[in-house]
Design a protein around this nucleic acid. Sequence first.
DNA 1: GCCATCACTTGACGCCATGTCAAGTTGACG
DNA 2: CGTCAACTTGACATGGCGTCAAGTGATGGC
Lengths: 193, 193
Amino acid sequence: MSSENAPTRIRILKSTVALLESGEGSKVRMSDIAKAAKVSRQAVYLHFPNRAELLTAAARYLDEVNDIEAKLLASRNAATGLERLDAWVAAWGNYIPKIYGMGKALMAMMDTDEEARSAWEDRMAAVHHGCAAAVRDLSRDGDLTQSLSEDEATDLLFSLVSVRTWEQCCIEFGWPQARFIEVMQQSARKALT
Amino acid sequence: MSSENAPTRIRILKSTVALLESGEGSKVRMSDIAKAAKVSRQAVYLHFPNRAELLTAAARYLDEVNDIEAKLLASRNAATGLERLDAWVAAWGNYIPKIYGMGKALMAMMDTDEEARSAWEDRMAAVHHGCAAAVRDLSRDGDLTQSLSEDEATDLLFSLVSVRTWEQCCIEFGWPQARFIEVMQQSARKALT
DNA sequence: GCCATCACTTGACGCCATGTCAAGTTGACG
DNA sequence: CGTCAACTTGACATGGCGTCAAGTGATGGC
């Protein structure tokens, strides 16, 4: 595609992202990536020291290309806490499919690779932070349930819209993406208020 | 499950379960298991054709030993749908820690091993079935929310008390087990009614 | 016009875990 | 005593990742 004569490093990143997105996340091998980028397997190692760092670089690249920051920050503009909660669930929930392949590969490596673990946890910390912000506004408006601390509410919200929950509902159970958003907005409102 | 006079087979299963329970699920190697069972690595292969089948046999063994069926069926006796929901969440939720190591190893293999995948999915299908039963009783009592179909409610409940959600809350966020049960009972009631 | 350097290729290798194979050893039982 | 089953021993194939050394070829500085 457009990556024919892009610098090699970028071509490798694009190929990595493409392979991870189109299924079988954790099965992608270094040689597959090299082949897709039309370079030798060793060329990949000239740019990235190992598989874990390549994947985390690809994750960063993906975030950049999609401008995730901007999209997730959109929910900030909501007037009330409840609106912000909805906006947040929609913003993050609709971003999940884009990073799912990536996440799957990274999560599969978490048990054995410290680098992959911290890369993924960094990203998830940002999402957790977004959940905390939504919960804080809810609390500010006096709409947060008595039965949960702010921390617990944050964790619960995070779990409700985690990549794994999304995977469960949309991949395994076949929910349409839009329905996932609706149900989770509603469930979050009910569970947190 | 013959194995009356095959102590070796049982020893291997017990060692497998023990290793999986005590941390680092997916890192357990065949040689680790052999060493723990005090047999040669090859002896393991005389009883189980490969890692996946050993793990699924260990999962079955674990279920047997803990008598999971009986424990999960206990929620059947609840009078109302709401009580059944609570009982179900408590029964299954309290069983999760016992099978967590096992589950982690099996889930890690799901991407690459069809056998492991189907073994785990079989077990999860039983849990999903339990969720469906609770939702049905809720619906029978007229307590199920209008905004969810029975299928959706079942899937949502299943996601709420999935092994991954438990892992998220109790392992990563450090919730006490009892609190996890409370919060999930409450959240399930709110989200489903 | 030449040569040095950089980016990449080629092909071989070590490592490690799974799984296979063949040739023992050991002990119970006829 | 021989046989059979259960187990051991050690070697080997396979398939990833990651490393290494010796090329090749285009570019740019001089």
